[in-house]
């Protein structure tokens, strides 16, 4: 399959890239790893007239901790996150998510920033990073601005980014001694989108209660979803079996899946319940010092 014609730009700097987006507006698309956009272009469902490739801009690939945040450059590939020691040792939620995105070959090209900006409700990063309490940095003609991920997903394939803005960094509150997380994905086969997936990030207090908790749901709504009411069930409470069960049931009611080839909505909703309970138990175990 051959995409429609387009003009290709590979700017060397971020300001150059932003200038191109200002010039071409809605007719331009940003190209990162291309593993969502290029398949759409090959099907000719997407036919941008101008492609702005970010891959030759230095300094957008990094994973580092600073000033209380884990900062991940937008061009960081899924595979880099999967194999990063910083992620493996301190961020099990992200490590879990990275290894179940598509397949190893796709993870070698696909980027975390591209995945978020594409805003596919089946994108694993959306749910995982909502659970992690992340924000993104958008860089445009007037410099950078921070957008909480809660306000980022506006609709299917639609984000709070302006046409002349580029997602440049993802920030996540730095992991602490009593923090834990998990991401569980139910898929028909390796490489497929989730039937349903659930991310959990939490911080336990010294008494073992949930001081902070985030729950993100994947592919069970028009966007990645945050299960805010389920989080409320847990906040300030000890995550015992009864509380976890109640939170999981609440998360299921907050999900909004549709019938499709991956299963009927009722089934997916119930899988949200099951996965939420399992992910919570796993995350609590990790926060208490398990692997």
């Amino acid at each position: 399959m051959i995409p429609g014609s387009f003009e290709y730009f590979s700017p060397q700097t971020l300001p150059e890239a932003v200038t191109l987006l200002q010039r071409y507006g809605e007719d331009a698309k940003v190209l990162a790893g291309g593993h969502s956009l290029i398949p759409l272009m090959k099907l000719r469902l997407a036919a941008p007239r101008y492609l702005v490739d970010l891959s030759r801009i230095d300094g957008l690939t990094y994973i580092r901790e600073s000033e209380g945040f884990l900062r991940v450059g937008a061009l960081t590939r899924h595979g880099d996150i999967e194999t990063s020691d910083v992620i493996r040792s301190g961020y099990p939620l992200l490590a879990d998510a990275a290894r179940v995105i598509a397949d190893p070959l796709v993870r070698n090209m696909g980027t975390v920033g591209g995945s978020l900006a594409h805003a596919d409700p089946a994108g694993d990063w959306g749910a995982a990073l909502l659970a992690a309490g992340a924000h993104v940095v958008a860089t445009g003609p007037r410099g950078g601005r921070t957008i909480p991920l809660d306000e980022f997903f506006v609709g299917t394939f639609t984000t709070a980014l302006q046409p002349d803005e580029i997602l440049t960094e993802i920030g996540i509150p730095q992991s602490q001694k009593n923090s834990g997380g998990a991401y569980l994905k139910l898929e028909r086969k390796v490489g497929d989108f989730a039937i349903a997936a659930v991310g959990v990030g939490l911080l336990l207090s010294s008494t073992g209660a949930c001081e902070q908790v985030g729950i993100g749901l994947c592919n069970v709504g028009p966007t990645s979803l945050r299960a805010g009411q389920a989080e409320q069930v847990l906040r300030g409470k000890k995550p015992d079996d009864a509380t976890i069960a109640r939170a999981a049931e609440t998360a299921a009611t907050e999900s909004d899946p549709a019938d499709d080839l991956r299963g009927p909505a009722d089934y997916k909703r119930d899988m949200v319940r099951v996965l939420t309970a399992r992910a919570l138990r796993l995350a609590v175990g990790r926060a208490k010092g398990g692997a």
Binding site: M1, Y8, I38, P39, D53, G79, L105, V106, N108, M109
Partner: peptide, 27 residues
């Protein structure tokens, strides 16, 4: 498959295995 699923088109790009049906030569 020509749809980023099968991996028959896998090549190494700067040492990493990637699907060459899902990138442009200009990249």
């Amino acid at each position: 498959c020509d749809t980023t699923n099968c991996g028959a088109c896998t090549v190494l790009l700067d040492g990493r295995a990637v699907k060459s049906c899902t990138m442009f030569a200009v990249q």
